[in-house]
Computed example of a mutant assay.
Amino acid sequence: MKRILLLLAFVCLTLSQTYAQQGRWTAEKANAWYARQPFLFGPNYNPANAINELEMFQAETFDPKTIDKELGWAESMGVNTLRVFLHDLLWQQDPEGFKKRLDQFLTICQKHKIRPMLVLFDSCWDPFPKLGKQRDPQPGIHNSGWLQSPGAAALTDVSQYPRLEAYVKGVIGAFKNDQRILLWDLWNEPDNTNNNSYGDENLKQEPKGKPEIVTRLLPEVFRWARAAGPTQPLTSGVWILWAGHDWGNPAKWSAMEKVQFENSDIITFHNYMELPAFEKSVKDLKKLGRPVICTEFMARGAGSKFQTHMPAAKREKVGMICWGFVAGKTQTNLPWDSWQKPYVNREPAVWHHEILRPDGSPYDPAEVAAIKQAMGK
């Protein structure tokens, strides 16, 4: 009986992957689309006064004035895209209101000549998201209030999957022809188990077998997204934390990477390492014959920097999305090691992420000069 159940699970997964791939853009269509795009650059964006994606978009805390001000700063340095995280609970809470606020956000982006990519799901950080007032930042800790979507309860409860499907189809369906949107990033770091985050055991209660659960679910998410009929491309980015990983060899792909590579129209990836490792990732991924965009980079302490990586990426026409823009409630200017040793009442020797201080002045003017040079400003 056990062998039969395993066989049925394998067949279901295979069929789900096959159905998800139906409608995938050809490499020719993807490359033609990318040829029409400028050299893409921008931050993973959350306004400085929002600790997470719920605080950014919930009606009580949505702040168009701050977003407009900050995207004005972005426009001045040549930013032409953003990566912005949504959340399934926003749809569950108030679909029509959420669509209106998202439309308003897109209008502000358009005003500043910025076309964002929108992220629907995220496996990183707190697995227990809750609507309503969000907690205050934990002093001295990097990204202490970010939320997973879906949370652990929904991820492990198949009876909630129709709700997740409605969210995917509802959001994409509402904006499927909207040229203000660059692309849809369906799931951020889907197999991330956050085993180095926060240093607080209460925030690390990940579901047992989470990578396997998401590996089965992600093809379904691609299928839901394609059923909504988007005119924009779809992606889910692969990620690494160590040098030497070989994305150029399909035999070495994980089960998750196989799903991501075989379903994404555009190849996206994360790399926070020094230039040689970044260039190896680009070389490996270009073997797939599709456009390549790095949707997370720039960690100063790890050697991932604007001055080194932007010129190399521009030569290869690899779009670049750094983590963070204006230092604020996410506290991602603090290093990753703040999860184990919080930077309470002390500044790090070097900021980890973010480009600007809260008043809009640059952390490092030389960085902004390098960005402007790369963007022709």
Score class of each variant (00 low, 15 high):
Glu28Leu: 12
Thr193Tyr: 07
Leu106Gln: 04
Pro365Phe: 08
Leu241Arg: 11
Pro43Thr: 05
Gly199Tyr: 13
Gln17His: 13
Pro139Val: 06
Lys130Ser: 12
Gln92Asn: 12
Asp284Asn: 14
Lys286Pro: 14
Asn31Met: 08
Trp146Ala: 05
Leu275Trp: 04
Gly42Tyr: 04
Glu316Ile: 02
Phe85Tyr: 14
Trp351Pro: 00
Asn177Tyr: 05
Val168Gly: 02
Gly132Met: 08
Leu203Val: 06
Asp157Gln: 12
Lys176Asn: 13
Phe175Leu: 04
Ala59Arg: 14
Gln37Trp: 10
Ile321Gln: 00
Gly360Leu: 00
Gln232His: 11
Asn263Cys: 11
Trp184Arg: 03
Gln260Val: 04
Cys124Gly: 07
Glu165Ser: 08
Phe222Pro: 03
Leu82Ser: 01
Thr81Trp: 05
Gln232Ser: 07
Lys341Met: 06
Trp323Ile: 04
Arg223Glu: 03
Lys305Asp: 10
Ala349Val: 09
Pro207Ile: 02
Pro230Phe: 05
Glu96Tyr: 01
Thr156Leu: 04
Thr295Met: 00
Asp63Phe: 06
Ala153Glu: 09
Phe121Ile: 02
Val221Gln: 00
Ile321Lys: 00
Thr14Val: 10
Ala48Arg: 12
Val79Cys: 10
Pro276Arg: 12
Glu262Tyr: 09
Val119His: 00
Pro47Glu: 09
Gly209Ala: 03
Leu15Glu: 06
Ser197Pro: 03
Asn333Gln: 14
Trp125Val: 02
Glu28Arg: 15
Lys377Glu: 12
Arg226Cys: 00
Gly237His: 11
Val214Met: 06
Ala312Leu: 06
Thr26Ala: 08
Asn192Ser: 08
Arg115Glu: 00
Ile141Ala: 00
Arg83His: 10
Gln104Glu: 15
Pro95Met: 10
